[in-house]
Computed example of a mutant assay.
Amino acid sequence: MTKTLTILFLFITLFSIAQSEKENTIEINGIVYSSVNNKPLSDVIVSFDSRSRGASTNENGEFKYVYNLRSGDRIEKIETIAMGYKLLDTIINVNSGKNINLNIILKPHLGINRQQALDHIEIGKINLLLSGGIAPVVYQSDEKFSKKYNLNFVEFGCEAVAEESLYEYNKTIFEYLDKKYGKKWRKEIRKDIIGLKK
C-alpha cells in the first residue's frame, strides 16, 4: 500500500511540475520576408538575446521557438540575421500572451533593389551587378560592351549580397536596356550576369 501511495504521489508531483512548466512557456513563431521581392527567406537565424539560443527559418521562411518564461521576464530582444541583409533587432513583450506571431521584413545590405536601379537609371549611372569571389573576373569584351551601352560592371567579390537583390536590380537594368537598345545587347553581354537567364 505504501509503495502504491509513493508511486501515486510521484506521479502527481511530476504531472504538476509538467503542467507548471507548460504554463510558463510561450510559443514565438513567425515568417521572415525579403523587402526586395516580398518572398519568404529560408535559412535565416532568429536569436533570442537573453537565451543565447534561437531558431532558423525553413524553406517557407517560417520559424518556431518555445520560450521558457523566468521570473522577471518582460521584454526580449530578437535578432534576425540573414546573409546579404541588414541585421534587424525586434523587441517583444513576452508577457503579452501564450502565442506571439511575428512577420519580420529584412532590408537588403547596401540597399540593392529595384528602386536603387531606377535611381541609378535616372542619374545615368547604369550598372550591371555581378556576384564574384575573391578575385574579380574581367573579360576583354567587358570594356567594349561598357562603352557601347554606357554602363559599368560592378562585382562585389567577397561582400555578402543577397542574390534576390542582385536579380531585382539587374532585371530593372535589363528592362531599361531592352527599351533603349532593343534585344541586341543580350547577344553581346557576358553570360554570368545574375538574372540574365531567367
Rank of each mutant, 00 (worst) to 15 (best):
K3E: 12
T4A: 13
L5R: 12
I7T: 15
L8C: 05
F11H: 01
F11D: 00
I12L: 15
Q19E: 11
S20H: 09
E21G: 00
E27S: 07
I31M: 08
V32S: 02
V32C: 03
V32A: 01
S35D: 13
K39L: 15
D43H: 04
D43P: 00
F48Y: 15
F48E: 06
S50W: 02
S50G: 06
R51D: 06
S52G: 11
S52W: 04
R53T: 09
R53Q: 14
G54E: 07
S56A: 09
E59N: 13
E59M: 09
N60V: 02
F63C: 11
F63E: 14
Y65H: 12
V66C: 04
N68Q: 10
R74S: 15
R74F: 15
R74L: 11
E76H: 05
K77N: 15
Y85F: 15
Y85Q: 08
K86V: 07
L87G: 02
D89C: 00
G97A: 03
G97V: 05
N99T: 09
N99V: 13
N103K: 15
K107P: 00
P108F: 00
H109L: 14
G111E: 09
I112A: 02
R114S: 12
R114F: 00
Q115T: 12
I121S: 03
I121G: 02
K125I: 01
N127Q: 13
L128Q: 03
L129S: 03
L130N: 00
G132C: 09
P136G: 10
V137I: 15
V138K: 15
Q140S: 13
Q140R: 09
D142A: 07
F145G: 06
F145E: 06
K147G: 07
K147D: 12
K148R: 14
K148D: 13
N150L: 12
G157C: 09
C158R: 12
A162W: 06
S165I: 07
L166S: 05
Y167V: 06
E168R: 10
E168Y: 13
K171F: 03
T172Q: 13
F174C: 08
E175F: 03
K179S: 13
G182N: 07
G182V: 11
K183P: 11
E188N: 04
E188Q: 13
R190A: 05
I193V: 15
I194Y: 12
L196R: 06
K197R: 14
